[in-house]
Nucleic acid binder design. Sequence first.
DNA 1: GCGAGGTTTCGGCGGGCGCCGAAGTGTGCG
DNA 2: CGCACACTTCGGCGCCCGCCGAAACCTCGC
Lengths: 245, 245
Amino acid sequence: MTATTPIPLATLAGLLADATRARFCLALLDGRAWSAGELARHAGVAASTASEHLSHLVRGGLLVEERQGRHRYLRLAGPQVAQLIEDMTAHAERAGAAARPPTLRAASAAAAMAAARTCYDHLAGRLGVAITDAFTARGLLRQDAGFALSDDGLAWFAAELGVALPASTGRRPLARPCLDWTERRHHLAGAAGAVLCATALQRRWVSRIGSGRALRLTGAGRQALSALLGLDDPTGDLSASAAGG
Amino acid sequence: MTATTPIPLATLAGLLADATRARFCLALLDGRAWSAGELARHAGVAASTASEHLSHLVRGGLLVEERQGRHRYLRLAGPQVAQLIEDMTAHAERAGAAARPPTLRAASAAAAMAAARTCYDHLAGRLGVAITDAFTARGLLRQDAGFALSDDGLAWFAAELGVALPASTGRRPLARPCLDWTERRHHLAGAAGAVLCATALQRRWVSRIGSGRALRLTGAGRQALSALLGLDDPTGDLSASAAGG
DNA sequence: GCGAGGTTTCGGCGGGCGCCGAAGTGTGCG
DNA sequence: CGCACACTTCGGCGCCCGCCGAAACCTCGC
């Protein structure tokens, strides 16, 4: 009878408060669509359990589904949802980093993620931060009074990268900061970040490692980043070669 | 024995997934410190229940406590936490706005909140959005390639408002967009937004209504906004005087 | 030092919810 | 047309956790 008002904040948080549902959302942060079965296996639960969770997440507006034959494919509902989950992860990592088992066998996977990965539709990790720093150092991105591309930065996409940025008409900002939870600094997100990431994948500057979010920087990528942004050793591998494990 | 890895995202979300804890955090969004008893009464639970919830939230890093004599005062742990909760509220409102009882008696309180309120330490509601629009229209704020104050905008704070902006050295950005969940558009947040809100309160341009987040625009406030930003009717009251309920 | 009032700890209760396996539905392939 | 497979629905189980009241603890003021 205590039908207290639902509190939308609590309802939304409840969707992410379960470990299995959170695992689903984190997996989907790679921006691609997964089938229900893939997600179930990934999270280590029965298909029936996953099915109910996924319906729950779709109803809550965090995921969208696309049915093809006997498959049900699921994606994050959009960049805003991805941003929210990334933000929450960043906060959670900050708070929980202290009380955590220092290392598990999967440390090598974590190392690959820390070097370079996608963050929904843009670049993250040391690579993403290094690119953002290079943008800032060359005056293409200004972070002193907010976070915005300069006129030079807008021109760079057309003249140097050779791709068109979407018009700023939509609700999505051209540039926005996204907190990198391994580097604990901001990297470039928004429509410009998405264009940059898509271009890098398309031109094989980076390639996906396995089926996850981790990326490998290719030789062509190193050359391109050096030529376009004067960026050498973008993932910090050279200077870190003497670091022990 | 299925000691699945804790999943920090789920842990964080779990803190906000309970209606009572969420109510606490939403109340604390006014940026001030509440005593444990005040929060318990506000949420309608026993003091013992509140006590445990609050310890939980402090342990999780969302709240910080300050003990004075027999009182325990609680605040949000910082602007980042406030931002996260605001973001989640915005998302939740967007998703849940459809299936909601259209109106309850507290509609007048909601109306006051929609007109003008604080959002942790900056201005929100129609007032906050109108000020942000005025900034943009006068070239003080650029939203076309991100979200940043222009050089004119930086000068405005010193020359027109007559207050110093904090150096951009800290981790906190000078300007950032904050999604307004009543207007569904961005308003100005960050250090500049905080300075503006603090100045408005200090100079009595706005005053708090009761003990909540809602604000009333004073006559002095109308004059100041008109003189400084060419902004008339910042809360839309004049044009809305014929709107039925 | 004693009472009043704010806060915390402790049991105990109850509901909600995540889990599974089994059975049911729908799709694709041979 | 029937099997295989992906997914969904349905019961049932068990645990987690939020709730309360009683009692202890602490601080203040007299």
